[in-house]
Design a protein around this nucleic acid. Structure first.
Length: 572
DNA sequence: ACGCTCACTTAGTATTCCTTTG
DNA sequence: CAAAGGAATACTAAGTGAGCGT
């Protein structure tokens, strides 16, 4: 059964400002408003956004049906979007090519080049080479030239990199407006290849304090609107040009106090789940045997979320890639194996495949068999529930609990558990390996993957060659009568052992992404406490950016499993 | 109860930066 | 000192969930 298509809005317009509610005077407003809407700031100043440079025509032709055609600037720009992607996998996908070509043809339609209609006759090589040449020229510049250009750019952008919130100067995140190009949707996205048109000042809504100076739009332009929404923390926003009902925001950066505060709350919530987890687990175990199908479905989804760290899985529109989470799993996504083992095979967020077998609770196994009975592969397994219902049930057990908290909780507590095995006799490097191994387990739990780098095989071969060479040297050393033979042999053997570990690690991690959990799921206080206890300098495991992001946790010593709100020592 | 908007977090990949190597 | 390799950061797509109106 196909999911029902959600009604799409005909215009894609969005109200520029929150509905004007009957509010008391601003000065009379309490700091926290009635429900949900919390006032996030009293004053907010910033300098707006940076637009990409205007298009500069290069005059390099498109070759069509063997003939060079010099396009008009706006046509040339679009052809250029494709030319730079000529060698990517996208250019091989029919949907991508069709969407691109539809857009390209529409741009050509009323001009002198409307005869360009057939993708097969389009040859983008000249433009491609032109861009390649520019890249080469850039690369060939001296270090000083590169530095000077970078410095000039940094200087011009400096004032956009920060904003002042309640008197504090803080980093802005994505202050650069997204440049035009072709949409790179992930997986089988029906809109891939569509033209992402240039975002204009007229698209942008500025959110800023009432008393702040409104940043001037580029000369000859206007902002779409200027609002003063103090319950939101975004500085500017616009309707996404591909999924027009989506809204893109310019937000504060990861190191800002706004983000730090919400990060702390997230991890405190995950920690407090530890106090409730036994009750929650007995609740869903009991409810899996319930006569109520809805109750049983709530229980089984919660069980899967807890055991496998699955995502919620909200309903999606048909004009997006077909991906699922626990609530949207369909009968064809699971296979019943012997001994209560289920094979899960579905595409999750970003169309990343979740392909894992798990032995699950016997009652849950039987429930799943019952839920899929008589259903074709495209029918929803959990037909009586959705994430809202699951979350509503969870909130009868713990205030504020939602599905995603389980991912944070299980990721963090897994790290905490695995780090218990750290050997203090080890070197810092070995301790880092322990940390990375724990990080890796979390990444597998959360199914955080990455594409195998193109260079992977060559790199492995090189390491293998190195290893072979070392083995040779060792054999030679054994035969030699060098008086320092013992020492040298030991050194060689150590290098060999290190190389061996490096190779195994590289192979094991070739599809596993450690970064995502480190940035988003692992309570930094677990890591920092571990660093302290085992005398590992934090930069061993956190990059400079992460140390800044987690600055609020830097002096913490904490046990994740003891939830005491007083533990948060560092105030922002 | 449900659909929809809004605001924000989470995610993989592209690009840039920095270090190592030849 | 340049090229290569790998780490770090930038980018932007794609999720979650609260809350509101119907």
């Amino acid at each position: 059964m196909l999911k029902e298509k959600k009604r799409s809005r005909p215009d894609g317009e969005r109200a520029p400002a929150p509905k004007p509610k009957k509010k008391p005077l601003r000065s009379e407003q309490p700091y926290t408003m009635k429900k949900g809407a919390v006032v996030m700031w009293k004053t907010l100043e910033h300098n707006g956004v940076v637009f990409p440079p205007d298009y500069e025509p290069h005059g390099v032709p498109l070759t069509y049906d063997g003939q060079d055609v010099k396009l008009l600037p706006h046509e040339e720009e679009i052809a250029g979007f494709f030319a730079v992607m000529k060698d990517t996998d996208y250019a091989l996908k029919p949907v991508f090519v069709k969407n691109f070509m539809d857009g390209f043809r529409a741009a050509l339609r009323n001009g002198p080049h409307a005869f360009i209609t057939d993708f097969k006759k389009c040859d983008f090589t000249k433009m491609y080479n032109h861009f390649a040449k520019i890249r080469e020229e850039k690369k060939a510049m001296t270090t000083e030239e590169k530095k000077a250009i970078k410095a000039a750019k940094d200087k011009a952008e400096e004032k956009y990199t920060w904003a002042v919130i309640d008197g504090r100067k803080e980093k802005v995140g994505n202050f650069r407006i997204e440049p035009p190009g072709l949409f790179r949707g992930r997986g089988e996205h029906p809109k891939m290849g569509k033209i992402k048109r240039r975002v204009m000042p007229e698209d942008i809504t500025i959110n800023i304090g009432r008393d702040a100076q409104v940043p001037p739009p580029p000369a000859g332009h206007q902002w779409k609107a200027v609002i003063h929404n103090d319950t939101a923390t975004w500085l500017a926003g616009w309707n996404d040009v591909i999924n027009v009902k989506d809204w893109k925001y310019v937000q504060f950066g990861a190191t800002s106090s706004i983000k730090a505060e919400s990060d702390q709350k997230k991890y405190e919530k995950a920690r407090s789940l530890h106090k409730y987890i036994d009750r929650i687990r007995s609740d869903y175990k009991r409810n899996m045997a319930s006569d109520s199908k809805e109750m049983a479905q709530l229980a089984v989804t919660t069980y899967l979320v807890d055991k496998l760290a699955l995502r919620a899985g909200g309903e999606k529109d048909e004009d997006l890639a077909d991906t699922v989470g626990v609530c949207t799993l369909r009968a064809g996504h699971i296979k019943f194996m012997d001994d209560n083992v289920i094979e899960f095979d579905f595409l999750g967020k970003d169309s990343i495949q979740y392909l894992q077998q798990h032995k699950i609770d016997e009652t849950a196994y039987k429930c799943l068999q019952r839920f899929v009975r008589g259903k074709g592969p495209d029918v929803d397994i959990f037909d009586e529930i959705n994430p809202q219902k699951v979350n509503a049930h969870l909130q009868t057990l713990m205030a504020g609990l939602t599905i995603k908290v389980f991912r944070t909780y299980n990721a963090s507590i897994t790290l905490d558990r695995l780090l218990q095995d750290t050997n203090d006799k080890n070197t810092t490097l070995q301790k880092k390996a322990t940390y990375d191994a724990a990080n890796k387990e979390v990444a597998i739990l959360c199914n955080h993957q990455k594409g195998v780098s193109k260079a992977h095989d060559t790199q492995m071969e090189k390491l293998a060659a190195k290893k072979k060479d070392l083995a040779k040297q060792i054999t030679a050393m054994k035969k030699s009568d060098d008086k320092n033979k013992k020492k040298k042999l030991a050194a060689l053997k150590e290098r060999q052992a290190k190389l061996e570990i490096q190779m195994n690690m590289k192979e094991e991690l070739k599809t596993v992404s450690l970064g995502t959990s480190k940035i988003n799921y692992l309570d930094p206080r677990i890591t920092i406490s571990w660093c302290k206890r085992h005398e590992v300098p934090p930069p061993t495991v956190f990059t400079k950016a992460l140390i800044e992001k987690f600055h609020w946790a830097m002096d913490c010593e904490m046990d994740f499993r003891f939830c005491n709100m007083d533990d948060v020592k560092t105030e922002i």
